[in-house]
Design a protein around this nucleic acid. Structure first.
Length: 403
DNA sequence: AAACTGGGCAACCGCACCTCC
DNA sequence: AGGAGGTGCGGTTGCCCAGTT
């Protein structure tokens, strides 16, 4: 095709930006907006390529960028989303308000990836690197767990493959009006829907453990959990496992969300129709997936408030935050984030403290200190539950990043 | 104190996708 | 329908700085 370069490289400056250049760019964009990036440098009086200007703006100058150290929850978010999305930094960034994809990518490469590796977790697959990590008497558990994770991965891949197929078939874009996702019966009182989401996820997982062939999350399961549960039912013949991945959710052309909180029969219905001419790409499908689950969650999370006040928003966010926190606290992802975790100490001590929000992978790997066989398994369930839970959480109104 | 090393981060590069004509 | 330009994205590079030898 021989396309022309995005800009004439001759005479254009490269390398670090000076404060003067920053000022010029800022001043121009504040006054005119960026418009065409290619034309911007000339208009702004910059000897830079438009692409360079865009990058500088999006990664550094933009006013809504939060700089500085990543919080623990941000780290969790990155790890969990990376487990689900891989190196789709922009998609991950949408769930981390005020952080740029570049910043997240750098942080992953320089911190989190290494930390995972150090923990014996493959930063690519997010799985333990070998069975040796598992306790002696946990051999069968190890196998079961890896099998479990393999199924998850398999489901994920299936979902992605399905997305590709669906994206070719689909002819509609999503109706993403959050209000449309708010089943009035779902959020009675002030109980945040997110806890119900978590309950649903965990409930589904727990049940699925009893029958792996049914998939990891049997979304269609309408079980007898004590806590309020919600179910997803699909009008297509979709293997339940497909519902287990955040990806799978939105790939369903027609999807019905039935909230069965506290025995209520109110039902929120989310439907998409095959009418539009828009054929989303795979990438778009993935994004839509996230958006849909996000909106689904948002709908669940919304109380019956008709207006969003800052107070109600914050109150809700606090509730949501607590709910997420409660779930996440139990995940072994926390291991990666705990400042107190010192693998060598654990190895040296030969005894793992029986605390605490999530135990220790290294503890598990070290001679079966964890005598509760279900803990490790539970940790891993939680790990992946958290991922799904996270995707279900809203990117834009995520409570965890309020300052 | 100088040289070396590694970590962290901003920026660049090239490809892929999207949109417009 | 197809080409060209614009933009977004992910991988990589290179510079700066702090810590170590």
């Amino acid at each position: 095709m021989g396309r022309s370069p995005c800009c004439d490289k001759v005479g254009l400056k490269k390398g670090p930006w000076t404060p003067e250049e920053d000022q010029k760019l800022l001043a121009y964009i504040e006054e005119h907006g960026h418009g065409s990036w290619r034309a911007l440098p000339l208009k702004a009086g910059l000897q830079r390529c438009g692409k360079s200007c865009r990058l500088r703006w999006t990664n550094y100058l933009r006013p809504d960028i939060k700089r500085g150290k990543f919080s623990q929850q941000e780290e969790q978010t990155i790890i969990q989303l990376h487990a689900l999305l891989g190196n789709r930094w922009s998609a991950i960034a949408t769930h981390l308000p005020k952080r740029t994809d570049n910043e997240i990518k750098n942080y992953w490469n320089t911190h989190l990836k290494k930390r995972l590796a150090k923990m014996g977790i493959d930063p690519i697959t997010h799985k333990p690197k070998s069975d040796a990590l598992i306790s002696i008497n946990g051999q069968s558990k190890s196998a079961a767990n890896l099998n479990h994770m393999a199924q998850w991965e398999s489901a994920r891949l299936e979902a992605e493959a399905r997305l590709v197929r669906e994206s070719k078939l689909r002819s509609s874009s999503f109706q993403q009006d959050p209000a449309g996702f708010c089943p009035s019966g779902l959020a009675s009182g002030s109980a945040p829907g997110v806890s119900k989401t978590a309950a649903w996820i965990i409930g589904g997982w727990t049940k699925s453990n009893e029958g792996h062939s049914a998939g990891i999350l049997n979304a269609g399961y309408n079980g007898d959990l004590e806590s309020p549960t919600s179910t997803l039912t699909f009008s297509e013949n979709v293997p339940p496992v497909m519902c287990s991945t955040g990806l799978g959710l939105s790939s369903m052309p027609i999807m019905e969300f039935a909230g069965s909180t506290l025995g209520s029969s109110e039902t929120g219905v989310v439907k998409e129709e095959r009418n539009s001419t828009h054929l989303p790409s795979y990438k778009e499908a993935v994004e839509n997936s996230l958006s849909l689950t996000t909106n689904l969650h948002r709908g669940m999370s919304l109380s019956m408030e008709t207006a969003w006040t800052s107070e109600s928003l914050r109150a809700r966010n606090a509730d949501v935050n607590n709910a997420i926190g409660n779930v996440i606290e139990e995940g072994f992802t926390n291991l990666l984030l705990s400042e107190s975790l010192d693998r060598s100490n654990l190895l040296d001590s030969g005894e793992e403290s029986k605390n605490s929000g999530g135990g220790s992978l290294s503890g598990n790997s070290d001679g079966g200190n964890r005598d509760s066989g279900s803990d490790y398994f539970q940790d891993n369930k939680n790990y992946w539950n958290n991922i799904l839970n996270l995707v279900n959480s809203s990117p834009s109104d995520s409570p965890m990043f309020y300052e």
